[in-house]
Design a protein around this nucleic acid. Structure first.
Lengths: 138, 138
DNA sequence: TTCAAAATTATAATCATTACAAATATAAAA
DNA sequence: TTTTATATTTGTAATGATTATAATTTTGAA
């Protein structure tokens, strides 16, 4: 279940991140674009609304959000860092042909490794690579 | 089961990658250091044996090996690309305190997502983050 | 041995990210 | 409301990993 905008605002307040104009817009953008945008996509799109926006602000804000565990970083491919509003129990599939990233449900908590008893695990990630149906059948 | 050096040489030949001195040394290094080395680690260590070694060669070679599916890239953290001799069915745990990366056995093939029927999957990755026991109890 | 193709090397270029300092905005106190 | 201190934003410069390029060297076949 996707968190509401109010939930996220609440998260910002709880975590003592001041809800500045830029931060709100970036958070809103991430919610409305759960397509794993890159920094450039976020920056280019938001610059239309906020002409004075600086790319530094996008980086700063994403770093704050990451520290607050509001977003996670996906680095399936090097030099292609993408950001994702955190929702639990989903994996990522990257199509090597068209580059699209798909979410899929997966019960990550089922993956417990006996070897890791004694380890404190606070983040589990699963990603697959391959070719998506659109590219396969055309 | 770890592939033997002969197996890997055989892989090179099959895949039409000429077994040059540098390539053999890099392959050997990766086998003897299954600790997910970075490019710098590989370069610095091998430079002692091969003083004329160039970092470009390390990059070129790793790219060839990746295309030949002999190694895989792990990018748990951005700006920290690591290389790993491919062995199936293991995940990676990265300790956020000391930075060490641990392998653990996991039956990745069990992770099938119904949503991905119709997708051609050829690479499955699992990585966890957290704190390792060494850092927890000190 | 000779020759053409491939690999290696050194250097320069690229590009995403980070660092920094000045300008601006914010919130609380007076 | 005005003042003041603090946090945020901005633009620019610096960093650093990776890639591109061209010259040199090595390799393997004829």
């Amino acid at each position: 279940m996707k968190p509401s905008f109010e939930d996220l605002m609440h998260e910002l307040v709880i975590r003592k991140i001041r809800p500045s104009h830029q931060r709100i817009k970036i958070l809103e953008y991430l919610m409305e674009h759960p397509c794993h945008p890159t920094v450039d996509q976020i920056f280019n799109d938001l610059q239309k609304e906020i002409p004075t926006l600086s790319k530094s602000t996008v980086y700063n804000t994403l770093t704050s959000f990451m520290e607050a565990q509001l977003v996670r970083v996906i680095t399936i491919e090097e030099n292609e860092t993408r950001y994702d509003i955190i929702t639990h129990n989903h994996g990522h599939f990257k199509c090597d042909s068209c580059g699209a990233i798909y979410d899929f449900k997966i019960n990550i908590d089922d993956f417990t490794a006996g070897e890791l008893s004694g380890f404190q695990i606070y983040d589990k990630n699963v990603y697959f690579k391959g070719i998506c149906p659109k590219c396969l059948y055309k």
